[in-house]
């Protein structure tokens, strides 16, 4: 295969690697995979962590290796870059919709109201600024009274 089609193939494979904590979205959608470089047959995947202390950091690397090895790419270099800094601005509208359907309220900027994923109400309040994972916060809905996770704007 020529390198451009290898690159495309790798991207396709990476889109099948689910985020370990939110499996409905993949590592490409999450913005963790930054680039794929294929130079003279050497494959390099550049990733960035969501949070410096994210416990899934090592798991990202392992899952990527496993996925690529399953398709015969055994010799892959995975480089972690901190800069440019990961941001929830990289989540597409489509990804945000997926989050909402999973029951996780997607990030909203500029103090706009956080939407309840259960009933769609904008009458919600923060319970704790940290939730089940470092990237989430705990909210509750004032309308349907259900608790939910909010994907922090970062």
């Amino acid at each position: 295969m020529v390198s451009s089609s290898v690159t495309e193939h790798i991207w396709e494979l990476l889109k099948q690697v689910p985020d370990p904590e939110i499996p409905t979205i993949n590592l490409v959608e999450l913005g963790v995979v930054r680039n794929v470089e294929v130079v003279e047959g050497n494959i390099k995947v550049i990733i960035t962590p969501t949070y410096t202390g994210c416990p899934a950091k090592q798991l990202f690397v392992d899952l990527i290796r496993e996925q690529l090895a399953a398709s015969g790419y055994h010799d892959v270099e995975i480089e972690t870059q901190l800069y440019p800094v990961w941001t929830t601005d990289w989540l597409s509208e489509e990804t945000k919709t997926k989050l909402l359907q999973t029951g996780i309220s997607p990030p909203v900027a500029d103090n706009k109201p956080v939407v309840c994923p259960h009933c769609g109400s904008k009458q919600t309040k923060v319970i704790s600024r940290f939730g089940a994972t470092p990237c989430q916060a705990l909210y509750t809905c004032n309308s349907c009274l259900e608790p939910f996770s909010y994907f922090k704007c970062h």
């Binding site: 600024r129 940290f130 089940a132 705990l138």
Partner: peptide, 13 residues
């Protein structure tokens, strides 16, 4: 949970 998450941030840093 918040304190443990905060500890993770600090440790990662």
């Amino acid at each position: 949970i918040a304190l443990s998450n905060l500890a993770l941030d600090l440790l990662g840093r």
